[in-house]
């Protein structure tokens, strides 16, 4: 019983990380480094909450969250792809702008109780003991996160379009010479990343904690960014990394309480440090193998591209 409850909490905490991280993975695979995940996520959160309030439908809210993130990412796309601005600086600016703008847009929604997105039980499967209620009685964001992992994995490594996208990320000059439209593909990849970040934001304001408060993403966008590197740009590893991070974060809360029961004093500061320590350890282990790291890292990541040069 308690184990089931803990697993449900872990899923809710990990889902936004996985979704936002998957979007950024596609963006980076196309060779664009967008550090604005936090900003796009919070825009998604405020957009989703506002529209859900105005229409009364959390599902329209989710769509609004996705659209908010995608539209906001277009600003980044225009600055870095069309105007060839520095991607790192623009991404940081996008985060700062998103945090400020969302606060302003959401001011009238503070303190209003949110509409929670209901769970959808999948017939038959949700009746399986233990696994059923955990995996098949979930909200739409969880189902979408799993679909995204499968879909992105298939797209990147099994389709022609995915191959082109990876080619652009590895060497935009060669891809351009082959006649692939680098800028258009990158625009689409940036918007996909924005849409995913927006969906993650919608999960925050409609499922995780159904409310709107300023800065409610609280750094999750940055964790999602780190997860992409952690996963060495592989979708499945994003899923594993996201859940590892989420699980350690929830486990440390329970460890505090259980420790109290047995009179064991584990410093809370140490416990809340654990998810980050786990991330560092895994990163070190992964980077042991230089070859696979190099193969997966998009070689043109963050480099500006001007088509007619």
């Amino acid at each position: 019983m308690i184990f089931e409850a803990i697993l449900l909490t872990i899923i809710t905490a990990s889902t936004p990380l996985v979704i936002a991280s998957l979007g950024e993975l596609v963006t980076e695979r196309a060779g664009v480094l967008n550090l604005g995940v936090e900003g796009m996520m919070i825009m998604g959160a405020v957009g989703a909450f506002a529209v859900a309030q105005m229409t009364g439908s959390p599902y329209i809210g989710v769509i609004a969250g996705i659209v908010s993130g995608a539209v906001f990412s277009l600003l980044f796309g225009f600055l870095t792809l069309t105007l060839v601005a520095n991607q790192v600086a623009t991404g940081l600016a996008l985060t700062i702008l998103g945090l400020g703008a969302s606060g302003m847009l959401g001011e009238s929604f503070v303190g209003i109780p949110g509409i929670k997105l209901p769970a959808i039980a999948i017939p038959l499967l949700s009746d399986i003991p233990f696994i059923g209620p955990i995996l098949f009685k979930q909200d739409i964001a969880f189902y979408l996160s799993i679909a995204l992992v499968l879909g992105i994995n298939w797209f990147l490594f099994r389709t022609r379009a995915g191959l082109k996208l990876r080619a652009i990320g590895d060497s935009h000059g060669s891809a351009h010479a082959l006649g692939i439209n680098v800028i258009r593909t990158r625009y689409l990849a940036v918007m996909f990343g924005g849409a995913c970040a927006g969906l993650a934001g919608a999960q925050l304001s409609l499922i995780y904690t159904p409310q709107w408060v300023e800065n409610m993403s609280a750094g999750r966008g940055w964790i999602a960014l780190a997860l992409v590197v952690f996963a060495s740009w592989r979708p499945w590893r994003v899923l594993i990394g996201g859940y590892l991070f989420g699980a350690v974060g929830i486990a440390q809360l329970h460890a505090q309480i259980i420790g109290q029961e047995f009179g064991i004093a584990i410093p809370a500061q140490f416990l809340s440090m654990l998810p980050y320590v786990a991330t560092v350890v895994v990163l070190v282990l992964i980077s042991q193998n230089r070859r696979t790291t190099l193969i997966n890292t998009p070689a043109s990541l963050g480099k500006p591209f001007v088509p007619d040069r």
Binding site: T9, Y208, T209, V213, M216, A218, L253, Q256, I257
Partner: peptide
């Protein structure tokens, strides 16, 4: 009284997680 340190003043998600953990326990 059981105490959970969230190590933050402001993070809706983490605060909700702490609340769930306490109730589950």
């Amino acid at each position: 009284l059981k105490v959970v340190w969230a190590n933050t003043w402001f993070d809706p998600g983490k605060e909700a997680d702490a609340a769930k953990a306490l109730i589950d326990q």
